[in-house]
Nucleic acid binder design. Structure first.
Length: 663
DNA sequence: TGGACACTTCTTTTT
DNA sequence: GAAGTGTCCA
């Protein structure tokens, strides 16, 4: 096999491993993708039926890239059909289409995204932050807790209330045949778990399973994988425990640390780094060695020495931005390709100053992952129209679009119908009643609206854009040119996918992200999270300050991994920057340089003394001398004082954080 | 009904 | 500082 010659010995060992569980611990820049795509190509070149392989990823982009690379290695060989490479969620979607009837649900379900989820939650309850609720619900679902069980476990009124909201939320999904992102995996697992014969069938079908970015898997994904490989244990996962940075989204860093034990796996470490210079890797190695929870590996550069890492210190963020803009200008003047330059930061709020700086110097840049196409208001409106056509009972979508563009249907009218309609959906009620409770004009508008929707619902995906536009003037009604253009772009996407019906189109769409669209042609400005998997010759990381990076109250080891990811994005030239004072949240505050600079060995003789955070967060249990134990409902920072809103068994008090202890 | 104004909040976000 | 939410009034 000629393509094996492209690999080093360790990579080759990994790529030619055939049977049994294997963990490929792949350090940053160690040729991870090359190794697993080669392994896939290798398996297929041995005559293994592509239909017997399954490769799971987290993004469509990764799946597509890997498919292409594997197939290009096999060029000229006769592969009967392409292998299945899919995201976990898309795999769930395909599975549920075939088998959701086994839990008595119809396969014409619609997938909701996190935004929809929050909206639904908001309709159910208004007293707790929807973000907090949706996180909690996700936690419960992923721990297989039913609302009743959550209620039974609840120790205080807040959590009893949450159990209640959870129950209503689940009922809402069932009534409207909706499926959230968690469900795509959960229900898939549930069905496989309850139907042993089916699990056998599926496990026998997918005899060779591979998983990319294993450090980002959560509990359900682990359980699901166990089901999928129950009959063969042929599972090969790739990942880097040191690059696990999605804990806040439910990724369980433990999965990769325990894989060896969980699956009785062989472990192969890829430690030769083909990306960065010694200086950069030394800093990365030094820094990450401060973490306790890790497998332990050291990156060794295949590129040798390069430039020293530069540390920038500035008076404030304006000076910082100016200094970096100047440096970037110089690089470009030296002929550096702008797409080889990137600026990273921990939090989006820092993008502003650097953007200003670049703009002042007339340097074109691209903000990666800023406002997302599918999250734009006008696109969500259009999607709501499509949903309403598929499911006339979708009251959430109905309310979203009933007055877009303006038809003179306001809050009052909606509230009246809401009260009168009982269990009926808006559209049902409007069709079946004379609407005497609202004004004649509004009644006529609504009747017309509903009739029009019914008409539109009979159309195919490629007929819709024209008709929607003619009837509702969705694009035309916007004065904002960007919005109109976005709508036209979306129309274009609908026409392109005329092979699908509306429902299929919506479900495909909900699993798509802008991540898939990242193209690199200009200077890139983005969060560290967005930079994962990318690499640049010249890299700037700004905001290296305590409180920003590491962020206050965050999991320090995950912050450190994040810094590790940031550093290892750089190929030859890394610049880390901090300031003395930063303007944030409408206020200027003095800041100290990040401990990570010291830990990386970049600033000698200094040690930032800071307690490892025993951070108090919303939801934490705390103890007070007099009031006893309570749960934190909210956190309020005023100056350098932090005030906590705490529920002490029903009575809510505001207490300064210094007066309580975390329990 | 919908605009104007006050008040709150502010980490990252592969699906 | 900005965006999102809530409330009031023409």
């Amino acid at each position: 096999m000629k393509f094996l010659d492209e690999l080093n010995d360790v990579q080759k060992e990994a790529a030619t491993h055939i049977d049994g569980a294997l963990l490929i611990l792949a350090g940053a820049g160690s040729g991870k993708t090359k190794t697993i795509t080669t392994r896939l190509a290798y398996l297929l070149s041995l005559g293994i039926d592509p239909a017997n392989t399954l490769t799971l990823t987290f993004t469509n982009k990764a799946a597509n890239e890997m498919r292409e690379r594997a197939l290009s290695l096999l060029e000229g060989q006769n592969i009967p059909h392409p292998p299945l490479l899919s995201t976990f969620h898309k795999f769930g979607l395909m599975f549920l289409k075939l088998y959701i009837h086994l839990i008595n649900r119809d396969n014409n379900f619609v997938i909701i995204d996190s935004d929809d989820q929050r909206k639904i939650i908001k309709q159910i309850s208004s007293d707790l932050p929807p973000n907090f609720i949706s996180k909690e619900i996700s936690k419960y679902k992923n721990s297989f807790l039913t609302p009743d069980e959550v209620y039974a476990l609840a120790t205080d009124s807040v959590y009893k209330n949450l159990a209640h909201i959870y129950e209503k939320y689940q009922n809402y999904l069932l009534e409207n045949n909706l499926v959230d992102f968690d469900d795509l995996l959960l229900l898939t697992y549930k069905i496989l778990n309850e139907n042993d014969d089916l699990a056998d069938e599926i496990s026998d079908k997918y005899q060779y399973i591979m998983v990319d970015e294993y450090q980002d898997t959560n509990e359900i994904q682990l359980l699901l994988l166990k089901r999928l490989c129950k009959n063969h244990n042929n599972i090969c996962v790739v990942g880097d425990d040191d690059q696990s940075i999605y804990g806040f989204r439910g990724a369980n860093h433990k999965n990769i640390l325990d894989f060896e034990k969980d699956f009785n796996a062989k472990v192969i470490k890829l430690e030769i780094n083909y990306r960065s210079t010694n200086q950069i890797l030394n800093a990365a190695n030094n820094l990450i060695s401060f973490n306790k929870n890790r497998y332990g590996k050291k990156l060794i550069s295949a590129r040798g020495d390069g430039k020293d890492i530069e540390i920038l210190r500035n008076y404030n963020e304006i000076a910082e931005a100016e200094m970096i803009a100047k440096k970037i200008r110089d690089l470009i003047n030296q002929g550096v390709d702008p797409k080889e330059i990137a600026v990273l930061y921990r939090i989006n709020a820092l993008s502003r100053s650097i953007e200003d700086g670049l703009r002042n110097y007339g340097i074109p840049y691209k903000l990666v992952g800023g406002m997302k196409f599918y999250e734009r208001e006008e696109i969500k409106d259009l999607i709501s129209y499509l949903r309403l056509l598929v499911n006339p009972h979708d009251d959430y979508s109905f309310k979203r679009v009933v007055n877009k563009p303006r038809r003179g249907i306001g809050k009052a009218t909606i509230a009246k119908i809401e009260e009168a309609k009982g269990d009926k959906s808006f559209i049902e009620y409007i069709k079946e009643n004379d609407l005497s409770i609202i004004s004649k004009k509004a009644a006529k508008t609504l009747k017309d609206f509903v009739n029009t929707l019914e008409l539109l619902s009979k159309m195919s995906l490629d007929e819709l854009p024209e008709n929607l536009e003619e009837i509702f003037e969705l694009s035309k009604s916007y004065k904002d040119e960007d919005k109109a253009r976005n709508i036209e772009e979306f129309y274009g996407m609908m026409r392109e996918r005329s092979d699908l019906n509306i429902r299929e189109f919506l479900n495909e769409l909900s699993l798509e992200t802008d991540q898939d669209k990242i193209t690199m042609d200009m200077i890139n400005v983005m969060t560290i999270h967005a930079s994962k998997g990318l690499e640049f010759d010249h890299l700037f990381v700004i905001g290296m300050e305590e409180g920003f990076f590491p962020l206050n109250d965050a999991d320090i080891e995950e912050e450190r991994r994040l810094a590790y990811v940031a550093i290892t994005r750089a190929r030859k030239d890394l610049t880390l920057s901090y300031v003395e004072s930063r303007y944030i949240h409408g206020k200027r505050s003095p800041v100290n340089k990040s401990r990570f600079l010291t830990e990386a060995g970049l600033i000698k003789g200094e040690r930032v003394e800071l307690k490892e955070s025993s951070a108090i967060k919303t939801g934490s249990l705390v103890k007070h001398k007099v009031f006893g134990t309570g749960r934190v409902l909210g956190i309020n920072k005023a100056g350098n004082k932090t005030k906590l809103k705490i529920d002490f068994g029903g009575s809510v008090r505001e207490i300064l954080s210094d007066f309580v202890e975390k329990v």
